[in-house]
Design a protein around this nucleic acid. Structure first.
Lengths: 145, 145
DNA sequence: ATAATTGCAAACGGTTTGCATGACC
DNA sequence: GGTCATGCAAACCGTTTGCAATTAT
């Protein structure tokens, strides 16, 4: 585990934000899930399951917002479904999402650096690899497709 | 205009589907908007505005589904907002969406073909450039960022 | 005639909001 | 004590669904 709940809580405190039980819980879940992709519903459920305490879903969303505003958390748009969240400290990766089987593959963003650089060269646009998903067919589905 | 409403209607008829007034209207709007990005709500509104006829939104969605199933229409995921639709005959575009100003730039997908090929080489994953959006900062926002 | 399509209205999933109660500093 | 955060419930947007009435074939 690279980041602890206390690290996250410490940053919130440093911004003058109040340290409440729900905020502690969400931070603990996120630190614990380092490297995983969690939805807001996942976070909500895990708080109840592992902390034994129930918090409202609106509190989950508001805590997520707070963490994003402080730069600790980022989200990724995975199609029509819920957003997924990961701690900002993780190695940036590009998600490849299969349209047929809905499996999602992660590629390290720096493997795709030439691709992003070419987009910038052609258009001036600077790519944020973690924020979106590239759609297509995974190797298996492409083969049987 | 590269495709006419009659072309689209003809394909539906060829599949044994019934040609109804709502289907004619949606096809007319889509043919008319060739090259534009329409949401389901756009299509709905334009049918009312330009055809003078009101159709239900569920009919719009069902007609969209029908057109996608027959391969005439495709959709693109633009973040959390509504899906956008374009006729399958259009030149494939990669959308670049600015996180700050929400402007969306279209790039011809074949300009990026070598990079899609590289993704396939590394992972076996076959990219569908039209189906998703690449997020980041447009040239203007990156400069003032 | 009969099967496909429509309109309506209600539900859906994911997220946001208004407001009164509560708790942190 | 003052303000910030929470829970609750209700609203929101985009989309889907069940079902009875309609219409193309």
């Amino acid at each position: 585990m690279q980041v602890t709940a206390d690290d996250l809580v410490g940053v919130l405190r440093g911004r003058g934000l109040r340290i409440t039980a729900p905020r502690r819980s969400v931070c603990a879940i996120l630190a614990d899930a380092y490297g995983e992709h969690l939805t807001a519903a996942d976070i909500h459920r895990r708080v109840e399951d592992t902390e034994g305490r129930s918090i409202d879903q609106s509190t989950v969303y508001r805590t997520i917002d707070t963490l994003e505003e402080t730069g600790l958390l980022t989200h990724t748009h995975l199609g029509h479904g819920p957003l997924i969240y990961h701690l900002a400290g993780e190695a940036p990766h590009q998600h490849l999402m299969c349209r047929r089987c809905s499996r999602s593959i992660g590629m390290l963003a720096n493997e795709l650096e030439p691709f992003y650089a070419e987009i910038t060269r052609l258009t001036g646009f600077v790519v944020d690899p973690t924020h979106g998903v590239i759609w297509g067919l995974c190797a298996d589905c492409a083969a049987t497709g």
